[in-house]
Design a binder for these strands. Sequence first.
DNA 1: TGCGAATATTATAGACATCGAATATTCTAC
DNA 2: GTAGAATATTCGATGTCTATAATATTCGCA
Lengths: 122, 122
Amino acid sequence: MQNALRSYKANLFQALSHPTRIAIVELLRDGELCAGAIQEQLGIEQSNLSQHLAILRGRQVLANRKEGNQVFYSLRNPVLVEVLDIMRRYFQANLAEAVQMLDEIRSEPQAMAAESAKAEGS
Amino acid sequence: MQNALRSYKANLFQALSHPTRIAIVELLRDGELCAGAIQEQLGIEQSNLSQHLAILRGRQVLANRKEGNQVFYSLRNPVLVEVLDIMRRYFQANLAEAVQMLDEIRSEPQAMAAESAKAEGS
DNA sequence: TGCGAATATTATAGACATCGAATATTCTAC
DNA sequence: GTAGAATATTCGATGTCTATAATATTCGCA
């Protein structure tokens, strides 16, 4: 059960582990929006958005409501916004480390251990 | 900048998007532990643990301190514990949905859209 | 009924993540 | 300096995620 709880958390985190999905959650913090409106705000492909919405829906992060031709999305639980706010404070409080982490992220993607390739001079 | 913040958050979530890494953070909530002790608690392969630790280190989630032969790990910022606690409350507040999500997780891994395969009767 | 808008799903190629096995590094003690 | 403990890194196979393109569904309306 301890383990199930960890899987639950891990999956929730995974749902939020993509910038687009964070953006979606943030867009919805003040109320529901239909998919089209979200797409307009984010400026991404329709099917791409729809897949991200499907993930957030499946993970119970978002609720959806059909109205005629449109589907309105909203946050199921505002606690997530609270978490995101905490993260912003965390980011600001540790700006130096945060920037360092952003650098890591940029240099790391291709292979977790390309560290040795650091051309430290450039 | 708005975007950088989102990437930052997304990457932090990604760092926490694996049950083993959640377990590590939780283990460290009350103080530092050396890698060996963590391994003992989790009962996983040494190299596997070391890889997870490398990820958490790279994402600035953990600090590490070398003492002789051992490396002690600790949380860089207790705010993450706060986040995990919030999530536990989230879990408890939405127990029904949480269980539903756990089911989703079990059925979903192989393909994000195997939903249609739901044998709703079972 | 049939068209067009809004959204969802499927397919697929490329990037990424995870694991265990093997190997490398770093340290202590002898 | 060599052995052995503790940790880290590399490698390779396998699985998962993401984006785009193509197609399907669902709905309102003429």
